[in-house]
């Protein structure tokens, strides 16, 4: 059983990290980033052609993490594969030792670097979760029996600050019914609003892991506010960043991120940190957010 599954099922507070595979074949830098998280996180998400930009696949990089004794969360999107390829890649993932799978729709190709590509979306994220659950039960989507079956721990995503929120909640419930056992969220910058969201999904009884994106600058905050769906960095945080001298920004980023983590911690069962290249700061953030101790005490398990 994956550590992620074990801890979430025990109701423990967990930390997950994230790496983005590179555009090329040299994995050293990306794997070093992951190795630096050892002891600080339970599992590491590996993004699947994030932002619809062509790069090395999440399946290969997830397998490489396992080689290094790290636990991946294999992200798989509906954008690039039809139902045959999705099911086949899921079986491949299990054979490579991958247990945690995050099923997502995937950014549209128009947002990426192959804008004329044919978008696939043969399945949507709910249907993909159902397909993976069906594989878990020993059948493919056409009802044919598998000779041997996987036992994936399935996750999904949700956007707590979406406007309107109800369509997201309706879909979240469908994802749970289709087999999602944990949720990682879009980046949270408004802990209070996140708290309200958690109250609304309490009845779903599923672990929610709050998404944390390291804010590198005021410009980045403004960019996300106008370009990333469901992300609202409050004016006060933007001002805080603006008033910080460039050389102190990293320190400020740690401070802001740790503060958000402390504020969301009571509402969720974990945090998912997306460091966007500033992975080396995670230990310090966790320390300042007063959660590194919890994780370290279970270090032998990781």
């Amino acid at each position: 059983m994956s550590k992620l599954r074990e801890k979430l099922e025990l109701g423990e507070f967990i930390v997950t990290g994230e790496i983005g595979p590179p555009k090329g074949v040299d994995l050293d830098k990306c794997l070093d980033e992951a190795v630096a998280l050892r002891g600080h996180v339970t599992a590491i998400n590996v993004t699947d052609l994030q932002s619809a930009v062509m790069r090395i696949g999440s399946l290969a990089v997830s397998a490489k993490l396992i080689e290094r004794g790290l636990e991946p969360v294999f992200q798989i999107t509906c954008r690039d594969r039809n139902r045959l390829a999705l099911q086949s890649d899921l079986l491949s993932a299990w054979a490579l030792g991958i247990e945690n799978v995050l099923c997502i729709t995937g950014d549209h190709p128009i947002l990426g670097d192959h804008t004329e590509a044919k978008p696939v979306y043969d399945l949507d994220s709910v249907q993909l979760l159902k397909a993976a659950s069906t594989l878990n039960q020993g059948h493919d989507m056409s009802g044919h029996e598998l000779e041997s079956n996987p036992s994936f721990f399935l996750g999904a995503v949700v956007t707590p600050a979406a406007e309107p929120l109800e369509p997201q909640l309706i879909k979240m419930k469908k994802k749970i019914e289709a087999g999602a056992r944990f949720f990682q969220t879009q980046a949270i910058y408004e802990p209070e609003r996140f708290g309200q969201f958690v109250n609304q999904v309490q009845e779903f009884n599923v672990p929610v892991i709050a998404g944390i994106v390291l804010l590198k600058s005021a410009a980045m905050a403004k960019f996300m506010n106008s370009n990333v769906a469901g992300v609202n960095v409050p004016e006060s945080i933007i001002r805080e960043m603006e008033e910080t001298a460039k050389e102190d920004r990293k320190k400020k980023a740690v401070e802001i991120t740790a503060r958000i983590i402390r504020q969301v911690k009571p509402f969720c069962q974990g945090i998912h940190i997306m460091p966007l290249g500033w992975g080396e700061m995670i230990p310090e953030i966790l320390k300042e957010a007063e959660i590194s101790q919890d994780v370290r005490s279970r270090r032998e398990e990781v």
Binding site: V158, K171, K174, A229
Partner: peptide, 20 residues
């Protein structure tokens, strides 16, 4: 829907608009 989704909106929707 640009993605032809059948079970509800994707995470790219923002204030009733499309990510595309």
């Amino acid at each position: 829907c640009h993605k032809g989704l059948l079970n509800g909106p994707c995470g790219g929707t923002n204030n009733g608009k499309c990510e595309v």
